[in-house]
Computed example of a mutant assay.
Amino acid sequence: MHPAVRETYGPADLSGAPIFAGGFVNFGYWDAIDLGLPLSETERIRSQEDLYRRVLDATGPPRAAHVLEVGCGLGMGCEVTLREYAPAAVTGLDIHPDQLRRARNAHADLLRREPGRLRFVQGAAETMPAGDGEFDTVISVEAAQHFPDLRAFAAETRRVLRPGGRVAVTSFFTVDDLPGRPGELAELLETYANGLDIARPVSALADALLEDGFTHVRVESIGAHVWPGWDLWLSRWWAPGTWPRNFLRAYEHGILDYYLLTAERAG
């Protein structure tokens, strides 16, 4: 585990920061929110839930399915999945033991009330503690920017999916593979400078899925529904020109974007 990941999701507890209201840790999908009106925590939480809804809708109806979330954090997305999509079961996978402890505490009532429908396990995206073909659906919401090895993630995803199973990943990537992109992002954004986020083109994950035999690989930019709302929310704490506001700047300068990738495991 990279030291920045260990600190950010351990002692620093990013999920407890006001910018991530509700315990989710994602930038949000703001399509259904009027950005011309004042934003409250209600709209912020809605944006984070809507990002999960966007991902889950892209996988097809997960009813009766066994769903795996890779990089589940506090498991708030697992709870949304269970509550709104009624799958047979959801497994939340995270590499950080502190996050798993917080997830089990946050969902203690649900874990007791519906044993077997929700569980949290520790593991890395590149070495998932799951059986071959164990899941019908794999999702990952704003975690892939941390994964050290996207090819290993693609291979493990194929292994744990049943034939015909689907994967949906959403996160931020560089728009191309120009060699100067990592340096540009490190100058703009602290999370790239300290190694928390890894600068890679979206094609790196798409190609990894294709090379591992996935079909119907689709890449969709959803940045227009992410970056403006995220930047407006950040403006409550940070002034223009401060590094957190540079996410929008990197998007507007054609360096970084937010994507949704979907694919199907061949039979």
Rank of each mutant, 00 (worst) to 15 (best):
F172Y: 07
E211F: 13
D197I: 06
T170P: 11
T191G: 08
L196I: 05
G195Y: 10
G213E: 14
T191P: 06
L210S: 10
H216Q: 05
A168Y: 05
D197P: 02
D177R: 14
P182H: 06
W227V: 00
G183N: 01
G223T: 07
S221P: 15
W227N: 01
V169T: 09
Y192D: 02
E184W: 02
G183H: 00
H225G: 08
H225A: 12
L232A: 08
G213S: 07
F214Q: 03
Y192Q: 01
I198H: 13
L232T: 00
E220I: 10
G213Q: 13
W230L: 06
A224M: 10
W227M: 00
N194K: 10
P201D: 12
D212A: 08
V202W: 06
N194V: 05
R200W: 07
L210E: 14
G183I: 00
D212C: 15
S171Q: 11
L185D: 00
D231F: 00
D177P: 13
W227L: 00
A168T: 04
Y192L: 01
P182S: 05
V219C: 03
R218M: 05
A199F: 06
L178R: 14
E211A: 15
L185T: 01
F214V: 02
G223P: 04
L205T: 12
P201I: 11
D207V: 12
R181V: 14
P182L: 07
S221Q: 10
G195N: 13
N194G: 09
G223Y: 03
A204H: 14
V175D: 08
A206R: 13
S203M: 09
E184F: 01
V217S: 03
R218F: 04
I198M: 13
